[in-house]
């Protein structure tokens, strides 16, 4: 029942609104064909990022894909935590965890072992608009612990202008979710894997493309 509701919600409300009003387009969605499990790694500039990636997934894969969110931000009230879980299958992570609690890596590794896929923004927070800040190591550790799971690099173009960090105003402007082909990391070293992931994301940004994740002169 819940799955049917969420599926309809995406198909008839979220996706049409994103495509026809906001101006999001989804590129290379065929990379998910024949893929059971994956880790989506994307750059992060806006609250729109998660919902747009989720909307771009094929409906059957969406059910089994969890977004990772910070408990101190999205789990503030029980309503927002419940909504995050309903629409994004969110895994709420404690950024300042107390001793004895399982670490974020352990929770996410558990999800992967269950057969779920996850969406990770390795930059951690949305950061300053446009800039790609340093990647956190978690993604590389997860990839190393689950060598059979490929990662899908995603470049999000333009979301930093539609809804930047300190704003509530959503402006319709063209933005793109560009999925890359699934990749397996070939490196043993965690730092090198991280570098590989970052490179795969930046490769999806087209050569002559202006950085549309930020306005000029901010």
């Amino acid at each position: 029942m819940r799955n049917i509701f969420v599926r309809f919600f995406y198909a008839f409300l979220v996706k049409p609104w994103l495509t026809y009003i906001v101006g999001v387009s989804f590129k290379n969605t065929e990379v998910f064909k024949g893929l059971d499990q994956f880790i989506i790694v994307a750059n992060h500039n806006s609250h729109f990022d998660t919902v747009s990636i989720m909307a771009g997934l094929p409906a059957k894969k969406r059910q089994h894909t969890c977004a990772v969110a910070a408990r101190d931000y999205f789990g503030k009230t029980s309503v927002s935590g419940w909504l995050m879980k309903l629409f994004f299958n969110a895994v709420l992570i404690n950024r300042n965890r107390k001793e004895g609690e399982p670490s974020s890596i352990e929770i996410l590794d558990g999800k992967l072992k269950e057969g779920k896929s996850i969406i990770i923004f390795p930059e951690g927070s949305r950061g300053s608009p446009g800039a790609i800040s340093n990647f956190k190591k978690g993604v590389a550790i997860l990839l190393k612990k689950n060598p059979t799971v490929p990662f899908i690099p995603v470049y999000l173009d333009g979301f930093g202008r539609v809804l930047p960090k300190d704003s509530l105003l959503i402006i319709p402007l063209i933005c793109k979710v560009r999925f890359g082909a699934p990749l397996f990391s070939s490196n043993e070293n965690i730092e090198l894997t991280l570098e590989e992931v970052k490179e795969a994301i930046l490769k999806l940004k087209q050569k002559d493309e202006r950085d549309r994740n930020q306005f000029e002169l901010t």
């Binding site: 608009p129 704003s167 105003l169 402006i171 402007l173 930020q214 306005f215 002169l217 901010t218």
Partner: peptide, 19 residues
């Protein structure tokens, strides 16, 4: 209009006017 505003060069301060 969405397309023209997307290719144009604007500033953060222009957001409310764009809206």
């Amino acid at each position: 209009l969405r397309e023209m505003l997307s290719i144009g060069r604007f500033r953060q301060a222009d957001r409310s006017a764009l809206f």
